[in-house]
């Protein structure tokens, strides 16, 4: 826990220190990462495929353009998702069937990676609330900020167990992406902090995605990887067969956009 660091740095501020060291990670093996997204409401299938890179190597992950990607629902008849370069693959106008289970298959270098995901019904997002707020001064005397704060607004259906992913863009740039579930809010109306502080003229776009449990758990496990102090550093549970990293998310999407006057 962070407390250990806090106490001990407090204790020996004169003594503790950091330094950069050389570590031999034995990092030669390369594995595939497939990020598969299918937005039911947008009718778009977006896939990005890349490889792991050596840890201290500063170049970005190498992209793979020559994989064969197909998507199908439970009735069969797979559709090809063509490559559009930079490791990306896209299929437009792929009509969704509510409640269907979709399977994506990626073949690369002779190995087939498969993943499945259910399309849950879209939960509508109500118009967002915008408030003007002034923050309190901090505990050490820092001044508080002020501006417009956007709140997402939706009602969780009581009869189902729901998983969400909220993606927030401000002026075209992605600012937030997080997952949540309805454990504490089942059946309630949610008004939750989305983004602040905004100023006049800013455009805020919130996408409320209904994802399924496997994708939700994947993102939760993924977020612990960058927390330096976890007891179990391990890859999130594999979503793809043959130990492919990444995820396959099929979701309903309800988007609201607002320009601050």
């Amino acid at each position: 826990m962070k407390i250990a660091i806090i106490i001990l740095t407090g204790l020996f501020i004169f003594s503790s220190c950091e330094k950069v060291i050389k570590v031999d990670l034995n990092d030669t093996e390369k594995r595939i990462i497939i990020q598969g997204n299918y937005s039911g409401d947008g009718q778009v299938v977006d896939v990005k495929i890349s490889l792991t890179s050596s840890y201290f190597d500063n170049s970005t992950s190498p992209n793979l353009d020559n994989a064969v990607v197909t998507i199908s629902d439970q009735t069969g008849s797979p559709q090809n998702v063509p490559s559009i370069g930079n490791g990306k693959y896209q299929l437009l106008n792929y009509a969704p069937t509510a409640g269907a289970t979709y399977t994506m298959t990626v073949v690369y270098d002779g190995i087939e990676y498969k993943a499945s995901s259910i399309l849950n019904s879209t939960i509508a997002q109500d118009p967002m609330h915008i408030e003007y707020e002034v923050e309190e001064p901090g505990p050490f005397g820092e001044e508080g900020e002020e501006g417009f704060v956007a709140y997402i607004n939706y009602t969780d259906p009581a009869s189902t167990t729901d998983f969400y992913q909220v993606v927030t863009h401000v002026n075209g740039e992605q600012m937030e992406k997080y997952v949540s579930n309805d454990k504490f809010i089942n059946g309630s109306t949610v008004i939750d902090y989305a983004y602040g502080f905004l100023k006049s003229g800013d455009t805020i776009n919130i996408d409320l995605r209904t994802i399924n449990e496997a994708t939700h758990d994947y993102y939760v496990e993924l977020s612990t990887l960058n927390d330096g102090n976890v007891a179990t550093p391990a890859n999130p549970k594999y979503q793809w067969s043959n130990r492919g990293l990444g995820y396959f998310s099929v979701f309903g999407s309800s988007v609201r956009e607002h320009i601050i006057p």
Binding site: R31, S54, L245
Partner: peptide
């Protein structure tokens, strides 16, 4: 970690 990769623009250890 034995390597790293990117998801949604963020880098993660493998």
């Amino acid at each position: 970690p034995a390597g790293k990769y990117e998801i949604d623009g963020q880098t993660y250890p493998y």
